[in-house]
Amino acid sequence: MHKNDKLLVIMPAYNEANNIASVITELKSTELPLDILVVDDGSTDATAEVVSCLDVHLIRLPFNLGIGGAVQTGFRFAVQNGYDIAIQLDSDGQHIPQEIPKLLKPILRERVDMCIGSRYLQQTEYQTPLSRRIGMIFFSIINSLLVGQRITDNTSGFRAFNRRTIEFLAENYPIDYPEPETIVMLGRNGFHIQECAVNMRKRKSGESSITTLLSFYYMFKVLLSITAALFKTFRKTGALSL
Protein backbone atom coordinates (compact mmCIF):
# COMPACT_ATOMS: atom_id res chain seq x y z
CA MET A 1 0.00 0.00 0.00
CA HIS A 2 1.27 3.46 -0.82
CA LYS A 3 1.77 5.36 2.36
CA ASN A 4 0.09 8.47 1.06
CA ASP A 5 -2.99 6.88 -0.48
CA LYS A 6 -6.07 8.64 0.82
CA LEU A 7 -8.92 6.26 1.51
CA LEU A 8 -12.58 7.19 1.80
CA VAL A 9 -15.46 5.00 2.88
CA ILE A 10 -18.72 6.16 1.31
CA MET A 11 -21.80 5.15 3.26
CA PRO A 12 -25.13 5.99 1.65
CA ALA A 13 -27.82 6.07 4.34
CA TYR A 14 -31.56 6.35 4.13
CA ASN A 15 -33.42 5.95 7.44
CA GLU A 16 -30.70 3.86 9.07
CA ALA A 17 -30.70 5.50 12.52
CA ASN A 18 -30.97 2.07 14.16
CA ASN A 19 -28.00 0.48 12.42
CA ILE A 20 -25.55 3.11 11.32
CA ALA A 21 -23.86 3.91 14.64
CA SER A 22 -22.76 0.33 15.20
CA VAL A 23 -21.46 0.07 11.61
CA ILE A 24 -19.38 3.22 12.05
CA THR A 25 -18.04 2.02 15.41
CA GLU A 26 -17.10 -1.27 13.81
CA LEU A 27 -15.48 0.55 10.92
CA LYS A 28 -13.38 2.67 13.26
CA SER A 29 -12.33 -0.36 15.27
CA THR A 30 -10.64 -1.82 12.17
CA GLU A 31 -8.03 0.94 12.58
CA LEU A 32 -7.58 1.17 8.84
CA PRO A 33 -6.30 4.60 7.76
CA LEU A 34 -9.55 5.75 6.23
CA ASP A 35 -11.93 8.69 6.30
CA ILE A 36 -15.63 8.03 6.62
CA LEU A 37 -18.31 9.88 4.70
CA VAL A 38 -21.99 9.31 5.38
CA VAL A 39 -24.35 10.60 2.71
CA ASP A 40 -27.72 11.05 4.35
CA ASP A 41 -30.16 10.66 1.50
CA GLY A 42 -32.96 12.79 2.92
CA SER A 43 -33.72 10.48 5.83
CA THR A 44 -36.88 11.17 7.77
CA ASP A 45 -35.61 9.52 10.95
CA ALA A 46 -32.73 10.49 13.22
CA THR A 47 -29.95 9.20 10.92
CA ALA A 48 -28.29 12.60 10.55
CA GLU A 49 -28.49 13.35 14.29
CA VAL A 50 -26.95 9.99 15.17
CA VAL A 51 -24.15 10.40 12.63
CA SER A 52 -23.33 13.99 13.54
CA CYS A 53 -22.25 12.82 17.01
CA LEU A 54 -19.77 10.35 15.60
CA ASP A 55 -16.96 12.50 14.21
CA VAL A 56 -17.25 11.47 10.56
CA HIS A 57 -17.95 13.50 7.44
CA LEU A 58 -21.67 13.93 6.96
CA ILE A 59 -23.35 15.21 3.82
CA ARG A 60 -27.06 15.77 4.08
CA LEU A 61 -28.91 15.80 0.79
CA PRO A 62 -31.85 18.22 0.81
CA PHE A 63 -34.23 15.47 -0.35
CA ASN A 64 -34.18 11.80 -1.22
CA LEU A 65 -32.29 11.12 -4.44
CA GLY A 66 -32.17 7.35 -4.32
CA ILE A 67 -29.14 5.18 -3.61
CA GLY A 68 -27.37 6.09 -6.87
CA GLY A 69 -27.63 9.82 -6.30
CA ALA A 70 -26.32 9.40 -2.76
CA VAL A 71 -23.34 7.26 -3.75
CA GLN A 72 -22.49 9.62 -6.59
CA THR A 73 -22.39 12.48 -4.09
CA GLY A 74 -19.73 10.47 -2.31
CA PHE A 75 -17.71 10.12 -5.53
CA ARG A 76 -17.92 13.86 -6.07
CA PHE A 77 -16.71 14.45 -2.54
CA ALA A 78 -13.82 12.03 -3.16
CA VAL A 79 -12.85 13.83 -6.37
CA GLN A 80 -13.03 17.27 -4.74
CA ASN A 81 -10.96 16.20 -1.76
CA GLY A 82 -8.30 14.24 -3.58
CA TYR A 83 -9.02 10.70 -2.42
CA ASP A 84 -7.18 7.90 -4.20
CA ILE A 85 -9.47 5.06 -3.27
CA ALA A 86 -13.15 4.94 -2.37
CA ILE A 87 -14.93 2.09 -0.67
CA GLN A 88 -18.68 1.81 -0.83
CA LEU A 89 -20.24 0.32 2.27
CA ASP A 90 -23.89 -0.12 3.21
CA SER A 91 -25.13 1.55 6.39
CA ASP A 92 -27.40 -1.32 7.38
CA GLY A 93 -24.69 -3.56 8.77
CA GLN A 94 -24.84 -6.08 5.94
CA HIS A 95 -21.26 -5.40 4.89
CA ILE A 96 -18.48 -6.30 7.30
CA PRO A 97 -15.79 -3.60 7.74
CA GLN A 98 -13.13 -6.19 8.58
CA GLU A 99 -13.46 -7.43 5.01
CA ILE A 100 -12.34 -4.12 3.51
CA PRO A 101 -8.66 -5.12 3.15
CA LYS A 102 -9.77 -7.94 0.82
CA LEU A 103 -11.32 -5.33 -1.48
CA LEU A 104 -8.28 -3.07 -1.34
CA LYS A 105 -5.71 -5.69 -2.20
CA PRO A 106 -6.55 -6.12 -5.91
CA ILE A 107 -6.72 -2.34 -6.38
CA LEU A 108 -3.41 -1.67 -4.71
CA ARG A 109 -1.46 -4.60 -6.10
CA GLU A 110 -3.08 -5.68 -9.37
CA ARG A 111 -4.10 -2.47 -11.10
CA VAL A 112 -7.77 -3.31 -10.80
CA ASP A 113 -10.14 -0.33 -11.20
CA MET A 114 -13.11 -1.71 -9.30
CA CYS A 115 -13.18 -4.59 -6.88
CA ILE A 116 -16.55 -6.10 -5.98
CA GLY A 117 -17.07 -7.98 -2.73
CA SER A 118 -18.88 -11.11 -3.84
CA ARG A 119 -20.99 -13.44 -1.74
CA TYR A 120 -20.99 -16.12 -4.40
CA LEU A 121 -17.42 -16.44 -5.54
CA GLN A 122 -16.83 -18.95 -2.80
CA GLN A 123 -19.16 -20.81 -0.51
CA THR A 124 -19.74 -18.34 2.33
CA GLU A 125 -22.09 -18.20 5.27
CA TYR A 126 -24.35 -15.74 3.54
CA GLN A 127 -27.81 -17.05 2.67
CA THR A 128 -29.63 -15.35 -0.18
CA PRO A 129 -33.38 -15.02 0.11
CA LEU A 130 -34.96 -17.26 -2.54
CA SER A 131 -36.83 -14.42 -4.19
CA ARG A 132 -33.62 -12.65 -5.07
CA ARG A 133 -31.67 -15.64 -6.25
CA ILE A 134 -33.41 -15.86 -9.63
CA GLY A 135 -32.76 -12.22 -10.41
CA MET A 136 -29.15 -12.58 -9.40
CA ILE A 137 -28.53 -15.56 -11.67
CA PHE A 138 -30.25 -13.63 -14.45
CA PHE A 139 -27.97 -10.60 -14.08
CA SER A 140 -24.97 -12.78 -13.62
CA ILE A 141 -25.53 -14.37 -17.04
CA ILE A 142 -26.37 -11.11 -18.80
CA ASN A 143 -23.54 -9.08 -17.33
CA SER A 144 -21.00 -11.83 -17.75
CA LEU A 145 -21.87 -11.96 -21.44
CA LEU A 146 -21.74 -8.19 -21.88
CA VAL A 147 -18.58 -7.57 -19.95
CA GLY A 148 -16.84 -10.71 -21.16
CA GLN A 149 -15.87 -11.88 -17.71
CA ARG A 150 -17.70 -13.85 -15.09
CA ILE A 151 -19.37 -11.60 -12.51
CA THR A 152 -21.00 -13.61 -9.73
CA ASP A 153 -22.43 -10.90 -7.51
CA ASN A 154 -23.87 -8.09 -9.61
CA THR A 155 -26.02 -6.52 -6.91
CA SER A 156 -23.33 -6.32 -4.27
CA GLY A 157 -22.87 -2.74 -3.11
CA PHE A 158 -19.67 -3.58 -1.24
CA ARG A 159 -17.04 -2.26 -3.63
CA ALA A 160 -13.76 -0.43 -3.85
CA PHE A 161 -12.71 1.96 -6.63
CA ASN A 162 -9.47 3.61 -7.64
CA ARG A 163 -9.10 7.28 -8.55
CA ARG A 164 -9.67 6.84 -12.29
CA THR A 165 -12.95 5.03 -11.60
CA ILE A 166 -14.05 7.54 -8.97
CA GLU A 167 -13.61 10.35 -11.49
CA PHE A 168 -15.61 8.50 -14.12
CA LEU A 169 -18.43 7.62 -11.72
CA ALA A 170 -18.59 11.14 -10.28
CA GLU A 171 -19.78 12.17 -13.76
CA ASN A 172 -21.71 9.06 -14.75
CA TYR A 173 -23.72 7.13 -12.22
CA PRO A 174 -27.18 5.59 -12.50
CA ILE A 175 -29.87 6.89 -10.13
CA ASP A 176 -31.72 3.81 -8.98
CA TYR A 177 -30.54 0.19 -8.72
CA PRO A 178 -27.09 1.29 -9.89
CA GLU A 179 -24.99 -1.79 -9.11
CA PRO A 180 -25.53 -4.08 -12.14
CA GLU A 181 -25.54 -1.17 -14.57
CA THR A 182 -22.28 0.21 -13.20
CA ILE A 183 -20.57 -3.09 -14.00
CA VAL A 184 -21.63 -2.86 -17.63
CA MET A 185 -20.72 0.84 -17.84
CA LEU A 186 -17.25 0.25 -16.47
CA GLY A 187 -16.66 -3.05 -18.21
CA ARG A 188 -17.55 -1.61 -21.62
CA ASN A 189 -15.44 1.49 -21.08
CA GLY A 190 -12.17 -0.27 -20.52
CA PHE A 191 -12.13 -0.42 -16.73
CA HIS A 192 -10.69 -3.47 -15.02
CA ILE A 193 -13.15 -5.26 -12.76
CA GLN A 194 -12.37 -7.98 -10.31
CA GLU A 195 -14.34 -9.79 -7.65
CA CYS A 196 -13.14 -11.07 -4.36
CA ALA A 197 -14.94 -13.37 -1.97
CA VAL A 198 -16.29 -11.70 1.15
CA ASN A 199 -18.64 -12.59 3.93
CA MET A 200 -21.81 -10.60 4.46
CA ARG A 201 -24.38 -10.56 7.21
CA LYS A 202 -28.11 -10.64 7.05
CA ARG A 203 -29.66 -7.23 7.49
CA LYS A 204 -30.01 -6.24 11.12
CA SER A 205 -33.25 -4.36 10.80
CA GLY A 206 -35.24 -2.40 8.30
CA GLU A 207 -36.51 -3.35 4.89
CA SER A 208 -34.34 -4.20 1.93
CA SER A 209 -34.74 -1.62 -0.79
CA ILE A 210 -35.99 -4.36 -3.11
CA THR A 211 -39.30 -5.94 -2.15
CA THR A 212 -40.71 -8.96 -3.93
CA LEU A 213 -43.44 -6.86 -5.49
CA LEU A 214 -40.91 -4.52 -7.02
CA SER A 215 -38.54 -7.17 -8.22
CA PHE A 216 -40.15 -7.46 -11.67
CA TYR A 217 -39.99 -3.74 -12.18
CA TYR A 218 -36.44 -3.90 -10.91
CA MET A 219 -35.41 -6.60 -13.35
CA PHE A 220 -37.03 -4.86 -16.29
CA LYS A 221 -35.61 -1.47 -15.40
CA VAL A 222 -32.08 -2.77 -14.91
CA LEU A 223 -32.23 -4.81 -18.09
CA LEU A 224 -33.23 -1.67 -19.99
CA SER A 225 -30.48 0.36 -18.30
CA ILE A 226 -27.89 -2.27 -19.07
CA THR A 227 -28.93 -2.37 -22.70
CA ALA A 228 -28.84 1.41 -22.88
CA ALA A 229 -25.46 1.49 -21.15
CA LEU A 230 -24.08 -0.47 -24.10
CA PHE A 231 -24.84 2.35 -26.49
CA LYS A 232 -24.70 5.46 -24.29
CA THR A 233 -21.91 7.95 -24.56
CA PHE A 234 -20.46 8.84 -21.21
CA ARG A 235 -18.85 12.05 -20.09
CA LYS A 236 -15.14 11.54 -20.01
CA THR A 237 -13.24 13.18 -17.22
CA GLY A 238 -9.92 14.92 -17.65
CA ALA A 239 -6.76 13.29 -18.87
CA LEU A 240 -6.89 10.45 -16.38
CA SER A 241 -9.60 8.57 -18.23
CA LEU A 242 -7.74 8.57 -21.54
Partner: peptide, 13 residues
Protein backbone atom coordinates in the same frame (compact mmCIF):
# COMPACT_ATOMS: atom_id res chain seq x y z
CA UNK B 1 -32.13 18.70 -10.05
CA UNK B 2 -30.04 15.76 -8.87
CA UNK B 3 -26.80 17.62 -9.53
CA UNK B 4 -28.09 20.65 -7.63
CA UNK B 5 -29.10 18.55 -4.63
CA UNK B 6 -25.65 16.95 -4.59
CA UNK B 7 -23.92 20.31 -4.84
CA UNK B 8 -26.05 21.67 -1.99
CA UNK B 9 -25.08 18.71 0.17
CA UNK B 10 -21.37 19.17 -0.65
CA UNK B 11 -21.50 22.92 -0.05
CA UNK B 12 -23.36 22.56 3.24
CA UNK B 13 -20.68 20.19 4.42
Amino acid sequence: NKTLAQEIGLLRH
